[in-house]
Design a protein around this nucleic acid. Structure first.
Lengths: 222, 222
DNA sequence: GTTTTGTATTTTGTATACATATATATTTAG
DNA sequence: CTAAATATATATGTATACAAAATACAAAAC
């Protein structure tokens, strides 16, 4: 018997495809900050009409990746050092909130998944591609987000992470930081398992702070 | 000589007009949760084409006021008690962050504006329309947001407040709560002026918590 | 009576056409 | 030669047309 449920929801609106294409182009740097996004040009390049392009650009705006001005169009958002600092500052606060809630609400299954994810992450370091490692690291933190049981918090944290997407490789690629990364993750698992809220908050604060330092150091922009 | 700079930026795209119209309709309850938003119908009613309607609906989606499903369209978001609890929980965390930052960064001018706004609010209680009072209360908190100097924080707080817009009158309309409201605002001003971060966080936590109780008590939905 | 299937209608997705504002190039006045 | 004025081109805003999917409903099959 075949699984026919497989093809359910396989349909993707063009606007979604365009959105992901443009988003990736921005995050990879193919579309540079300050660059003007012109609807007809993009429509021709991607072989669609202006309509899905417009809708995708609007979605990019809400993610903070482009800035739109009425009658002027959209430009790829310049990210200033100040913006990054702001984002990271909010992120630390909300990550602390997330681990605190996770301490209270996490179940045994999630703890197991956390440990498994962490083990896999350790095995990948030095072997797999950086983006795969970065994805595994995201998975780890996603489990914690989920254990917070607060959907709005999860949504905001995902959005903040999105803002930092361009820089997420920086931290992973420095081999000297791997020891710290693994150590912090393990401390975090222990703290959450012991429901030690203060310890968990401390560890996550340091963890994000390390990322912050790396990002700000490697930053060419002002 | 006339001032021609006056008309600069006076232009508003139709999508913005439609967005505000629909948003107000949702917040007033004219468009009820679960109700289907149909593009042609709205376009006819508002006398515009489908294009600005579509773009407005997408914006409503990012504000969390409607839920869109591909090929199915948009429905006004049902707000569950759980959603509200989540929003308020995040809001308390971020309001605490905002007042803490405000303690560090606020300047004399802003303190004066805070006191002036508060004085005006007190004078309005019992005299002015509830929505005007609510707006004045927003102004008060906006000054504190601004003093945090964190643009991303301000943006997220504004969005969270948006989610609670439907219920903001509930708290204001109960005359018994006015004393508490005024008292808390004054305590908050004092704490910020003295740069007493812990006290400020405590006051704002109580302040939002009081709103939370009122909202959840008056809530008919599950 | 219930389920299935075919058809009509409605609704969203996408493309395109036209209107209008902005940017660019050209001309003309000083 | 510079700068204002004008013409031209380009881009966005909006409306409309057409395609395709979802829904509603009726008829047929069981």
């Amino acid at each position: 018997m075949h699984d026919f449920t497989m093809r359910i929801n396989e349909y993707l609106p063009l606007r979604e495809v365009v959105f992901h294409t443009l988003r990736d182009a921005i995050l990879r740097g193919e579309l540079e900050p300050g660059e003007h996004l012109m609807e007809v040009q993009l429509a021709n390049k991607l072989g669609v009409s202006r309509t899905p392009i417009r809708e995708a650009i609007r979605q990019l705006q809400t993610e903070g990746l482009v800035i739109m001005t009425p009658r002027k169009g959209a430009v790829v958002a310049e990210i200033t050092r100040e913006d990054l600092t702001d984002v990271l500052e909010v992120r630390i606060t909300l990550e602390k909130m997330a681990v605190a809630l996770a301490c209270e609400n996490i179940n045994q299954d999630e703890i197991e998944r956390l440990k498994k994810s962490q083990q896999e992450l350790e095995n990948m370091l030095g072997n797999d591609k950086l983006t795969d490692i970065a994805n595994k690291d995201e998975e780890f933190h996603d489990i914690i987000y989920g254990a917070s049981r607060n959907k709005r918090l999860i949504q905001i944290l995902n959005n903040l992470r999105e803002q930092l997407y361009r820089y997420r490789i920086e931290y992973i690629k420095d081999e000297q930081k791997w020891v710290t990364l693994v150590e912090e993750h393990n401390l975090l698992i222990a703290a959450i398992e012991n429901k030690d809220i203060e310890e968990a908050k401390n560890v996550i604060r340091k963890h994000i702070d390390n990322q912050r330092k790396t990002i700000l150091e490697n930053l060419k922009i002002n």
